[in-house]
């Protein structure tokens, strides 16, 4: 909380200092770099222009194929999007932040993204780190959440 407030304060100060200096300040989103490229010639799993315009079509199509038919190719898988586009650093931005890959653009375009009401907004490697014993369980289980009680099989 304090961190967040500090960041806003700093951002405000920076903006205040920056605006008079650079009149041509861009409003475009700052999109975080992906972890890897598909190939030397191509960045994303489809040409970048296409992805920017149509990524939701690809994900939607893949979603039905995965859930209903068990097709688990990785090219258009949301999990793989996140694996590549979100860092597994402990302080990597969450989807609520404008610094998160998805939200950076979605905030700019004013389009609500609801994938992450159910889906993880951080990569598989983050989840693995968190679920390992002693591996930051406090992070996984925030204050008001307890592990499901499994103490014996007695009645209530």
């Amino acid at each position: 909380m304090i961190n967040y407030g500090l960041k806003i304060l700093l951002l405000g100060l920076l903006l205040g200092a920056a605006v008079p200096a650079s009149a041509g300040g861009s409003l475009l989103p700052v999109i975080p770099e992906a972890q890897a490229r598909v190939s030397e010639t191509q960045g994303c799993v489809e040409p970048v222009d296409d992805m920017r315009k149509n990524h939701m079509e690809y994900i939607l199509h893949q979603r039905d194929k995965t859930v209903h038919e068990g097709i688990r190719t990785q090219q258009h898988s949301l999990v793989e999007c996140i694996n590549c586009h979100v860092s597994d650093a402990p302080d990597a931005p969450r989807v609520s932040s404008e610094e998160h890959f998805c939200n950076s653009c979605h905030t700019y375009a004013a389009v609500k993204v609801d994938c992450f009401q159910c889906h993880a907004d951080r990569p598989v490697s983050t989840a693995q780190k968190l679920s390992q014993p002693g591996g930051g369980e406090s992070l996984l289980l925030s204050a008001d959440r307890q592990p499901v009680s499994v103490t014996g099989d007695q009645a209530q």
Binding site: S149, V150, T151, G152, D153, Q154, A155, Q156
Partner: peptide, 9 residues
Amino acid sequence: VTSTFFDGV
């Protein structure tokens, strides 16, 4: 039936 999930209750 008894369980942690309110079976039989």
